[in-house]
């Protein structure tokens, strides 16, 4: 059970003067249950890659398999039920007059009874922590964080095993951002595979188990946050940052001469400090 990508290549507007190869030579596998972050600067091709995972784009060359089944024009409906995609701006998908109807939209095409639909909508709302009192409100009156929840809910109703998200936390305030990351963590612990795109290295370090770095249309690095963020200079050459905390401890390590592992989150940073205190190297 996995997402398997083989020798993927995609060219925009082939055979025209505007022809541009967005991604090439990508082969990788994402196992069920992983929490993957795809990073790369704007225009690196990460969004093009993500759109191949549920058939929004079909490869110019190469193949993509979902649980062993190759994505083709013919099985899109089934693939999209299995692989949900939440876009960056919920405004791009919310359209029904009430929250409830909007969440239920994806279920329309399956011949389900009203009770079955109702059960699925309530279950999804419960998962994302959306207050049922909002069901009858207009989608356009919601706050930014609520809109995003409804958008995710509208994808979760189809019970996808894989969830793709483009910048799920951007534009949210502090609490909204933390709640969103916690929600994704929770979904992942319930067995949903998460693949997200993010520009925030701090967020990525906090939630992802694996980071795939895309540069100039192909995979440049693939590993744990610790592995990827240990290459500060390489990332800088691709105009990417490492988390602020990583820089802090790198600088400290350099100046103090104490060798330290790559620190990617505040939590790890606190552990390092505790360790240094216990070893008697730091005295408060």
């Amino acid at each position: 059970m996995s997402i398997l990508i083989k020798d993927l290549k995609y060219t925009y507007m082939p055979k025209t003067p505007f022809e541009k190869t967005a991604i090439h030579d990508i082969s990788l596998e994402i196992q069920k249950g992983e929490f993957v972050a795809v990073i790369g600067h704007t225009g690196s091709g990460k969004s093009t890659l993500l759109q191949h995972l549920n058939g929004l784009l079909l490869p110019t060359e190469g193949e993509v398999f979902i649980d062993g089944e190759k994505i083709t024009k013919k099985n899109l409906s089934e693939i999209r039920r299995k692989v949900g995609f939440v876009f960056q701006y919920p405004e791009h998908q919310l359209f029904e007059d009430t929250v409830y109807k909007d969440i239920a939209f994806a279920l329309k095409r399956f011949k389900l009874s009203d009770e079955e639909i109702d059960a699925k909508v309530r279950k999804a709302a419960n998962t994302v922590g959306l207050d049922e009192a909002l069901f009858e409100s207009s989608v356009f009156d919601l706050s930014g964080g609520e809109k995003r929840r409804v958008a995710i809910c509208g994808v979760l109703v189809s019970d996808p095993s894989y969830l793709l998200l483009d910048e799920p936390a951007s534009g949210l305030d502090g609490k909204g951002r933390r709640d969103m990351l916690a929600l994704l963590k929770k979904l992942n612990s319930e067995g949903v595979t998460i693949v997200l795109i993010s520009h925030s290295m701090d967020d990525v370090a906090e939630v992802a188990d694996r980071i795939i770095l895309i540069n100039e249309g192909t995979v440049a690095l693939d590993g744990t946050p610790g592995e990827v963020f240990s290459k500060e200079e390489l990332l800088a050459s691709m105009s990417l940052d490492v988390p602020e905390v990583t820089k802090l401890f790198n600088d400290f390590s350099k100046r103090s001469g104490i060798p330290l592992p790559t620190v990617t989150t505040a939590l790890q940073g606190r552990e390092i400090i505790r360790m240094l205190i216990n070893e008697g190297r730091l005295v408060l």
């Binding site: 759109q51 549920n54 995609f85 791009h92 189809s158």
Partner: peptide, 13 residues
């Protein structure tokens, strides 16, 4: 283009 994709992703045909 983005809206069409967002709706297609949740099953619109």
């Amino acid at each position: 283009d983005k809206i069409i994709k967002a709706q297609a992703a949740r099953g619109a045909e």
